[in-house]
Design a binder for these strands. Structure first.
Lengths: 184, 184
DNA sequence: GCCTCCATGTAATTGGTTACATGATTCT
DNA sequence: AGAATCATGTAACCAATTACATGGAGGC
């Protein structure tokens, strides 16, 4: 249940509405966690009922701005230091790699080249973000650390995908009837 | 809905029971996708009803061994080449990095050191797997490609976590009252 | 007046985890 | 005889996505 902690963490930076939070998920935060407005609004109501956030303003169109309470800050810190992060084990792109041998060699290599292109694109986007002026706030400094993780991650997987594609082209894996390779 | 494709892909290697498949998820495949038996058994029943797999044997204790059908192989190949893999966006460990500024500097550095230790452990485990005899089958060769991705991934994130911890210790981020850093 | 964006919510469905439930076989 | 492991299933619950639904404010 990390959604609530993501919301608390974001509200710790500055008071925001559900609409603002939804946009935040669509932007930077979306690289590590996603949420739709349909999940955010009910969760905000629960956090408010539990006293972890409070509504500070009512704007036009029924806009509700929330800020984190002291109890909310305690809770987000407890989450960060007192629990181990769950490691997501749902990497569909790598699940497919286990089954590449089911494809003819050229299609397997094509798949890996497409993955390389994906990582290349993502890396370029991250490098652009990194062009932004150096961090002015503590929050921006944390953001910069996360961005650097993304950059290294994408670089590693880009070079892996290129290597793997070349590997498959050189020592073709792929179903040509049998399952056992000619040369062990 | 990748669970069904994971099951089809595994059954393409050799016929297995729900129990065998559950164990496979607990082992190698578990690094990229997880599933419990309570999800596997109903899904196998659906795949059988749809003609993508068929039961080939009834063993002791009601053990049911399934094999993939031609239609099942077509489906798993369509999935691999005809659809784009969904990129999971639930990286709780990196979500927390965005909020490191909420912790006192030393606790933030501690968090990053613990992440480094995690990546170190995982990397060592992967390197041990890589000691195994070279791939004999096409499936094992694909598995080796996936393993190499894991190794490069863990290496990159290990070195990132070490760098970030040192960075936080050198230019402390963390809440000491205000939000704006002393030195921009 | 019309379009876009702002803004909030609920309902239905799917995918996944945890808990419940049962029993046979094999090993010691 | 007892423990460990093999083996299958269902039910209840939770998290998340997609679809449904409404309306105000601001710009042109």
């Amino acid at each position: 249940m990390s959604l609530r902690h993501a919301l608390l963490g974001m509200l710790a930076e500055r008071p925001m509405s559900g609409y603002d939070l939804t946009k935040s998920f669509d932007r930077s935060l979306g690289h590590v966690w996603t949420a739709r407005h349909s999940q955010i609004y009910p969760e905000l109501a629960r956090l408010r009922d539990e006293g972890l956030i409070r509504q500070v303003e009512e704007g036009p169109r029924g806009r509700k701005t929330y800020e984190v309470t002291d109890a909310g800050l305690v809770e987000v810190r407890r989450w960060m230091t007192g629990t181990e992060p769950e490691r997501s084990k749902r990497e569909e792109a790598f699940l497919r790699v286990f089954f590449l041998w089911l494809l003819p060699p050229q299609e397997a290599a094509d798949y890996l080249r497409r993955q390389a292109a994906y990582h290349q694109d993502t890396l370029e986007r991250y490098l652009e973000y990194a062009q932004a002026p150096p961090p002015g706030t503590d929050a921006e400094l944390s953001y910069r650390l996360a961005l650097e993780a993304g950059i290294r991650h994408e670089k590693a997987l880009l070079s892996w995908a290129q290597w793997a594609a070349a590997e498959v082209e050189a020592r073709p894996t792929g179903s040509r009837g049998g399952r056992r390779r000619k040369s062990a």
